[in-house]
Nucleic acid binder design. Structure first.
Lengths: 225, 225
DNA sequence: CTAACTTCTTATCCATTTCGGAATTTTTAC
DNA sequence: GTAAAAATTCCGAAATGGATAAGAAGTTAG
């Protein structure tokens, strides 16, 4: 079976465009799903869980800009890569798009080679970020070596604690909801109580004598230097 | 049966070229498979597992440059040698190609003698790197001789133990997951229980009285001086 | 071909670590 | 001040890997 490079959701109201894009991406090993407008797209997020979205800006039923805003506002989806598609001249939108947290920008008419290479490089950026060691002053979290170094002292955390800490540290300042944490560390199928998270948080705090983890009552936890 | 010197994947969209190259390489004892474009090539990596690729730059469906980038980005394949084939004048590509981690560069039209000699020398470089003994203070692991020298004392490890030890030592500090170990030492098709790894680890520890192998509970093992 | 030996794998038992939950106290938000 | 949420403590359960032994499987020597 073909190993899939990643999942891409293509959102455009023009069927021709969708066809072309879908064809080219699948040829290069991506798994593709499509949507015809913003509403449609958002409803497909839950089931398809794309890694990247190609988002046309001009669309009926919620345009690309609006869709992007909504996705970025939802912590569950805010690590999806977003690349805008737009008419060549539309410079204003480009600027706005990038401000809104889009990751790249491709002008129509679409040139398949360019498209694919942009998407590749977007994914490459993503995977790099993912694998790398997370580094802060006095604190290093090495996913590969499964090790935390704090003030030049190596600290060995058990698996769950490590994963939890690495998760929080992966986006400093961002609050992770308890649900989200359960989902990502324990998986959606495992059922554990809320107190369990507390206990793990506490153990981490204990082992690193500095407190990098902040509690946001009623919401979740965040990592902060 | 002829002893094969190595596996070469020839990627070019011109059938004539493929013919010539394939003929010459097989004549000199290489095992050859072919692909007509980048997409095709990448999909053959999994099954053919080449040691070296001859990669044409100008191709439809993913050009050589792009293909090279993708291969280099994948740790599973990043030790494959890559030699670009290109039209004589195409100087820009040459520079770019070498930047991207290509190992050599051959201009068309292809002269069979030159081709073969370049490939020979590429393999020579590879085998040097590969046979490289892993050396630490007081510890030497010689892949070629299947031998471990610890404090000037030669230690003979059985095959599995040796391979396991060499694997871990190949990336000191990095944790190898149990799955990963099974995959690399036993292969994806063989089914052995998890305990088997433990036992081998234990035997290695026993034979080298110093403990270079650390357990990371729930995750795997790593080598550490 | 057989016997002796080595290597590989599985099974079993055991110690330890890690995990998750309950109860209680403390903190926080309103 | 009150109620809800989180911190803390403690404990039993479960998971995990280490140790040992023993049986397969593979090798080698005679």
């Amino acid at each position: 079976m073909d190993k899939k490079l990643g999942k891409v959701l293509v959102v455009d109201d023009e069927k021709d465009i969708i066809q072309i894009v879908k064809y080219n991406l699948e040829l290069h090993g991506y798994e593709v799903d499509t949507a015809e407008n913003g509403v449609d797209a958002i409803s497909k997020l839950k089931t398809f869980k794309p890694d990247l979205m190609l988002l046309d800006i001009m669309m009926p039923h919620k345009d690309g800009i609006q869709t992007c805003i909504e996705i970025r506002a939802n912590p569950e989806y805010d690590d999806i890569l977003i690349i805008f598609l737009t008419a060549l001249s539309d410079e204003k939108s480009e600027i706005r798009g990038l401000e809104l947290g889009a990751d790249d920008y491709i002008s129509k008419p679409i040139k398949p080679k360019l498209l694919v290479s942009r998407i590749h490089s977007a994914f490459r950026r993503l995977s790099k970020d993912d694998a790398k060691t997370i580094i802060f002053p006095n604190l290093e979290i090495n996913r590969e070596k499964f090790m935390v170094t704090h003030n030049a002292k190596e600290i060995l955390l058990p698996r769950k604690e490590f994963e939890l800490f690495a998760l929080l540290a992966s986006k400093p300042g961002r609050v992770f909801l308890r649900n989200e944490i359960l989902e990502k560390i324990w998986g959606s199928d495992v059922i554990v109580g809320d107190r369990t998270i507390d206990v793990h948080i506490r153990k981490i705090r204990q082992k690193l004598d500095a407190d990098y983890i902040q509690t946001v009552k009623g919401v979740g936890y965040k990592f902060e230097i």
